[in-house]
Design a protein around this nucleic acid. Structure first.
Length: 168
DNA sequence: ATTCTGACA
DNA sequence: TGTCAGTA
């Protein structure tokens, strides 16, 4: 309610602005991207652009580092447990136990290079509900990953992301 | 003036 | 994490 939906999701903030608002260096933000923690939008010029949701995600990263005590590697591993196979309709549905994302415990699904076939990669992952969930509060993440059916999981995610993207 | 990539103390 | 180079 505080912000209209488009304000939340539109990537229009420069990396410099983000840096000063979060009190972090520009290079640190670039590093987070290189490390797979964030997927900034790219202008045609090649410049990174961030939305308010992106800033929220960065805040959570700071929290995990400064308060929780995780390092970048730890955050990546934590996110590798986001059950994308349960959250979105996976091309290899019945073979979930064999899909790379399911077995990977080191990096999140958006960091896994896709083989042939459907080529949805990091660029599109930016808008994926799985990736976006990482922009939610860590408390909510806990509750979510705590025994819920696929259907419930799906609904909760929609709910939560709606809280962010809702309303004018 | 700002940001980008890549290399590097 | 920061900086320096050479661009766009």
């Amino acid at each position: 309610m505080a912000h209209p939906k488009h304000i939340i999701t539109d990537p229009v903030i420069s990396i410099g602005t983000v840096a000063e608002r979060l009190k972090v260096s520009v290079s640190t933000i670039r590093k987070y991207e290189a490390d797979g923690l964030i997927i900034p939008f790219r202008a045609e010029s090649g410049h990174r652009l961030f939305s308010l949701e992106d800033i929220e995600r960065l805040r959570i990263i700071q929290h995990m580092i400064q308060v929780v005590g995780l390092n970048v590697e730890g955050i990546r591993r934590l996110q590798s447990f986001l059950p994308c196979w349960d959250i979105i309709s996976c091309p290899q549905k019945n073979t979930t136990r064999t899909c790379p994302a399911f077995k990977e415990t080191t990096k999140p699904c958006w960091m896994i290079k896709n083989k042939e076939g459907d080529g949805n990669n990091a660029k599109n992952c930016r808008t994926c509900i799985v990736y976006r969930f990482g922009s939610q509060c860590t408390e909510d993440v806990k509750q979510l990953v705590h025994g819920t059916s696929k259907e419930e999981l799906r609904n909760k995610l929609e709910e939560m992301t709606n809280n962010w993207t809702q309303e004018q």
